[in-house]
Amino acid sequence: MNIVVLVKQVPDSGAERSLAGDGWSVDRSGGTNVINEMDEYAIEEALRLKDETGAQVTLLTVGPDHAVDSIRKALSMGPDAAVHVSDEAVAGSDALGTAKVIAAALGTLEYDLILSGAESTDGGVQVLPHLLAELLDIAALTGARKVTVEDGGLLVERQTEDGYEVLRASGKAIVSVWDTINTPRYPSLKGIMAAKRKPVTTLTLADLGVDAATVGRSGAATTVLSAEPRPARGAGVKVADNGDGGDQLVAYLTAEKFV
């Protein structure tokens, strides 16, 4: 079995994030870029299936040159190889543009199963797996909390708000996963050393035969109308307790939809 895991390098959600000079996109030039957290669960799931079935695991990422740092880190967890699509013209792509590039890159790879995180911590639109399934004409089994390989197919439990749904697919499929599915392994020293020797293929849009005009900011089907930096933290609300402190707290928490 050949598994491709979609991996995205994102700004560290635990660190300070800022808007780039254009005023509407995320600044990705800083040093605090990490593997999108949910993608680590997708990698772990692929490695679990690799341990179980001997599958080949290939990582696929679209991103600037420094995304290779995240690729090496992800490879040190255990995948076999990686493909990195890096092209200036991709910058500013919306989800559809990115999906077109990924679909073209997948065309250069053998795969039976595509795994991805259910969402990224920077864009967070959660549509990429669905767009890819449409472009590639394969099954989309999204939001998985459990994946089982059966004879000639896949069995997936999809996490819902109040339980789970059981999905089955035969043939090629894309499965996106939530962080309830497993506990990602740590890389190891051996993995770090081995990662240095694993093949990372770098491709451009020209290599993939993708017309640069159909992706990037100009080719985007959606438009960001405005973006604002997060407002500075306010002073907060002080509740004076004159016997009704509890009620005031409940009222506040209810109004803010915390309870």
Partner: peptide, 14 residues
């Protein structure tokens, strides 16, 4: 080396 950076990252992560 690059792997030294990766080892330190791993140690910090754990």
């Amino acid at each position: 080396t690059d792997e030294a950076a990766a080892i330190l990252d791993l140690a910090a992560d754990i």
